[in-house]
Design a protein around this nucleic acid. Structure first.
Length: 954
RNA sequence: GGGCGAUUAGCUCAGUUGGGAGAGCACCGCCCUUACAAGGCGGGGGUCACUGGUUCAAGCCCAGUAUCGCCCA
């Protein structure tokens, strides 16, 4: 074995081997329990970031753990077409390369371009995942736009339409004026901004006057430009100031449109002037007010959010209407909403109708993709009626069929579910599932899987011209079907029967509404058990936190602080990293800042750490319910851990190669286990138990710590050192026993660690197999270790803990007295019990090897002893004669420090025990324990004081 | 405004029926000892955000305050 762990030499070859051998596939034995995890499909044209690496690590750990327990295990791989994101990327690429827009290219050609790009970039993710060691079944890889999933999408749409759960309607939607598409309310991000509240005077019609004799009322608005579409003014029906005006009219400036004053609770008497202008076509609240009061709706904006040349007038049902003129004042036509706002304000001012302008804090909706202000827009869109679906989905969580880990996310889920809007699923994009709806020339809509089906079902011959809806479905519509569409639905496949419901979903809390909730709703509506009860998509949802950068900032391309998991694995030099981060910037001026930041954070670039170290770090940091601050130091620490395990294995293999180890031909020969052998076996078992519990409860951080602690502190720190005296000086039977144990424990440890660190455990396991001659093709299909109580030897644990204490006490003297490890020591012991004496006799070899003792002499009570440095183990006194070398001051300091510590602790405990209420209330066991501690500490203090006196007397 | 979460060592974080404050990294001292200097041995370091309450006993339970973060309106 190489002296230093070198991940690059072992990772890829092992992965290739696993994949070739088909270990990632379900073994297909359906008599065994099945286990399935669905990958949250990453964007096919994207690349994986640290968040993906994190989730993939968790999923792979879960999957490997279950697979090793013999289950018929499937980790389903696949990618998402990511409608708007992908379309934007390809559009930008097209423009950069050819200067063409997608419209110039035409729909069909443009979609071909996207498919080309998908082919080209789709491999990026697969390559990354292979490097991460993910054991997904590659042969089953799916794509949300492949034929099977497209068929599922069509069927779901048609069925929901027929069940009246999908409808089409003219509604106010969130419109992205940059991307020219509707988006769902989830895709809108509200931001707080400082703006203004404008107060306008609206003249009353027909000479009406207000209660205080004015010929106008004052309305307040944050969006002056929308006044061109006003169709009413609302006042509170209880408001004494305006009550009398209800039913009267206003002459709207510029258009001279006559609009009514109406009473509606939406108008808040306390807020602003108490009068609210109502623009049903451009504001969600006003839309509701308009509907309640049968107000016409006037759309004054184009899809680019500019003032139209001619308005569109609808009645409150959304039908074309001639209630008002469509005329719009010339000076506003074609202006952007921003310019229109300025002009409206200045012209109203000129007319003497601007009452005042007040600074105002408001929240403004932005599109999460395009980044521009969203415009509420009156358009025809398709919607899913969510409420009936949400009911079942809510119950599944309430009754425990679906569990969130951590549980607190249930609240979030419930809160959203109980107050959910209908889901706008149509998008004015080209990339996505085309809506299976056709229109005849009169605009009548027909929904079916194909045009042919429409014609058959409705007896329409070829003379009737049908046009398919231009729009596509929201990406989340198809990913909402992910758990069952990937398993072959709508066909009744064996896979569905075997793997659905799936077991665990691992995903980020940020897509709990976008994806998780919708997946639950869709799945429970379409997937039924034989008795008709709904199937849940998954039984457990493990929610991960976000991975943030070293400063706790969210990682994003625009901030330039993203990390590529492959750079953690392979390393990258500073210049390449800077280029990578600053290239392709949307805002080139950010590049300088990002470069500076990067050079500061990674002055020497990034070293290679290997996949196992990366995975171990991610697992170790995966505490539930909180975000992760990425920390390169942790990664480095765990890389060192990998090296530690590597070298421990190297030691085990070097000590046992071509020597009798009790395996193969040598099995059955006399084998004697040392105290250390028996001890480590027990420790291994305890570790197995704890580790399994951690994995079973999704505590990957605890699992990683348990593994780390056992490997480094117990196995390497104590056990390997304790094997040395035996391997160097023990009898043949003892050596065989120790080698056997070394190999056994290492082999078990490797299997235990495999789910988290697959590569090095396989590499080493294959070599261990070479020595033991035991069978098995690959560690990844070996059984996962199980706890065996018979292997825990309590007496061995007690004896070895004693040995450790003696060793630590002597090391403490060496360390603090600055005695070179080269100088052999002679140990005198006083006050030794029978057990102590036995232990000294039995463990001489261990003691002298680990502390370089030359001799141990039991001193009788009362016998005089030479000047010594001393230590206590319980009541046992250890003396190291210092024969003229003693540094009196150093020894006094050392003992005083210990005495002070002991006295402090003793004071605390004595205080407790002298408290009568403690003694009368605390459980017996606690009191006994405290009394024991008190006695022990008392002895310690007495002995230390004695020793201090002795030293002082010199 | 409503809801959720966080606050523990210099940093990143554990602490699961309330009963001896922990880990990794960083720090200080010694050591290239035949698995590993990506190491070994020894050591220092915390008013568990704050206030009050429950309890014999609170990092943990309850109430409130502060700061930070996220979600919703």
């Amino acid at each position: 074995m190489e002296k230093t762990y070198n991940p690059s030499a072992i990772e890829q070859k092992n992965y290739q081997n696993w994949e070739e051998k088909g270990y990632f596939k379900p073994h297909g034995d359906t008599s065994k329990e099945s286990f399935c995890v669905m990958i949250p499909p990453p964007n096919v044209t994207g690349s994986l970031h640290m968040g993906h690496a994190f989730q993939d690590t968790i999923m792979d750990t879960i999957i490997r753990y279950q697979r090793m327990q013999g289950k018929n295990t499937l980790w389903q791989m696949g990618t998402d077409h990511a409608g708007i994101a992908t379309q934007m990327v390809v559009e930008r690429k097209l423009f950069a390369e050819t200067g063409q827009t997608r419209k110039e290219l035409g729909r069909e050609t443009f979609i071909e371009k996207i498919w080309d790009w998908k082919k080209e970039s789709g491999n990026t993710i697969c390559k990354q995942m292979r490097r991460l060691g993910t054991s997904v079944d590659w042969d089953r890889e799916r794509f949300t736009m492949d034929d099977g999933l497209s068929a599922a999408v069509k069927k779901v749409f048609v069925d929901l339409y027929n069940d009246d759960l999908i409808y089409r309607g003219k509604r106010l939607v969130n419109w992205d004026p940059k991307l020219h598409t509707a988006i769902s309310d989830l895709e809108v991000e509200s931001k707080d901004v400082k703006g203004f509240m404008w107060h306008f005077r609206y003249p009353l019609a027909d000479g009406a006057l207000t209660a205080d004799g004015k010929d106008h009322i004052v309305v307040a608005t944050t969006r002056p430009e929308t006044m061109l579409g006003d169709t009413g003014v609302a006042v509170n029906p209880e408001d004494p100031r305006y009550q009398d005006l209800i039913g009267k009219n206003i002459v709207l400036p510029f258009t001279n449109r006559l609009i009514p004053i109406l009473g509606d609770d939406h108008a808040d008497m306390e807020k602003g002037t108490g009068c609210v202008k109502i623009t049903p076509a451009h504001d969600f609240n006003d839309y509701e007010v308009g509907k309640r009061n049968n107000l016409p709706m006037i759309n004054v904006l184009t899809f680019e959010a500019c003032i139209r040349d001619e308005a569109e007038v609808f009645n409150s049902m959304g039908e074309k209407s001639d209630d008002y003129s469509t005329e719009l004042p010339k000076q506003f036509q074609g202006l952007t909403r921003e310019d229109a706002r300025k002009l409206v304000v200045s012209e109203l001012d000129a007319l003497g109708l601007l009452d005042e302008i007040k600074p105002h804090d408001l929240t403004v909706p932005y599109g999460d993709r395009g980044g521009v202000v969203i415009e509420p827009m009156l358009t025809d869109q398709w919607y899913v009626r969510v409420a009936p679906l949400a009911k079942t989905a809510t119950e599944a969580v309430a009754n425990g069929d679906i569990k969130f880990v951590p549980q607190q996310y249930e609240n979030l889920y419930n809160a959203w579910m109980s107050d959910v809007n209908d889901w706008c699923i149509s998008r004015q994009l080209w990339w996505g599932h085309r809506i299976p709806a056709w229109y005849d020339e009169s605009g009548k809509v027909y929904v079916a899987h194909t045009e042919a089906e429409v014609r058959t079902e409705h007896n329409l011959d070829d003379s009737v011209k049908l046009t398919q809806d231009d729009d596509v479905l929201d990406t989340w519509f198809s990913s909402g079907l992910w758990t069952f569409s990937t398993l072959g639905w709508p066909e009744k496949t064996m896979d569905l029967k075997t793997f659905h419901s799936t077991d665990v979903l691992v995903t980020g809390f940020d897509i709990i509404f976008f994806w998780v909730a919708r997946m639950i709703m869709m799945t429970m509506h379409f997937m039924k058990n034989e008795d008709g009860t709904p199937q849940v998509p998954f039984k457990t949802i493990y929610m991960t936190g976000l991975i943030r950068d070293e400063n706790g900032e969210k990682m994003s391309k625009s901030k330039g602080n993203v990390l590529d998991p492959l750079d953690m694995i392979d390393g990258i030099d500073l210049e390449s990293l800077v280029t990578k981060r600053c290239g392709n910037m949307m805002q080139p001026k950010m590049a300088k800042k990002i470069e500076k930041q990067t050079r500061k954070a990674f002055p020497n670039g990034i070293e290679a750490h290997g996949t196992d170290a990366l995975r171990f770090t991610l697992a170790a940091m995966a505490s539930t319910g909180r975000d992760i601050h990425w920390d390169m130091n942790r990664l480095e620490g765990y890389r060192n851990f990998c090296n530690k395990l590597w070298n421990a294995s190297r030691y085990v293999l070097m000590s046992s190669e071509e020597t009798p180890c009790g395996f193969g031909d040598d099995a059955g020969n006399e084998m004697q286990l040392s105290l250390a052998d028996r001890w480590i076996q027990g420790q291994m078992q305890t570790t197995i138990k704890e580790f399994r519990h951690a994995l079973d409860t999704y505590r990957f951080d605890l699992a990683a710590n348990i593994l780390y602690q056992f490997t480094w502190d117990q196995f390497c720190g104590w056990y390997l050192e304790l094997t040395k005296p035996i391997l160097f000086k023990g009898s043949e039977a003892e050596q065989r026993g120790t080698r056997h144990t070394l190999l056994n424990v290492l082999e078990t440890l490797l299997r235990l660690a495999h789910p988290i660190m697959p590569f090095m455990t396989e590499e080493i396991w294959q070599r261990v197999k070479g020595v033991t001659g035991l069978g098995g093709e690959s560690i990844m299909i070996e059984p996962f270790p199980e706890f065996d109580a018979k292997l825990v030897d309590e007496k061995a644990v007690e004896d070895l803990e004693w040995v450790k204490q003696i060793i630590m006490a002597i090391r403490n003297i060496r360390g603090e007295m600055d005695i070179s490890p080269k100088i052999p020591l002679n140990l005198l012991v006083k006050n030794a019990s029978d057990d102590d004496q036995r232990r000294f006799t039995e463990n001489q070899a261990f003691l002298s090897a680990l502390t370089k003792l030359e001799s141990v002499t039991i001193v009788a009570e009362g016998e005089t002893t030479p000047v010594s440095a001393t230590a206590l183990v319980g009541e046992l006194e250890l003396l190291i004669p210092m024969a003229g070398l003693i540094d009196v001051d150093a020894e006094l300091t050392r003992l005083s420090k210990q005495l002070e510590k002991a006295q402090k602790e003793l004071g605390k405990i004595s205080g407790k025990l002298s408290n009568e209420r403690f003694v009368s209330n605390a459980p017996e066991a606690v009191i006994t324990k405290e009394r024991g501690k008190q006695a022990e500490l008392q002895t310690t203090c007495d002995k230390l004081s004695e020793q201090i006196e002795t030293i002082k007397a010199l």
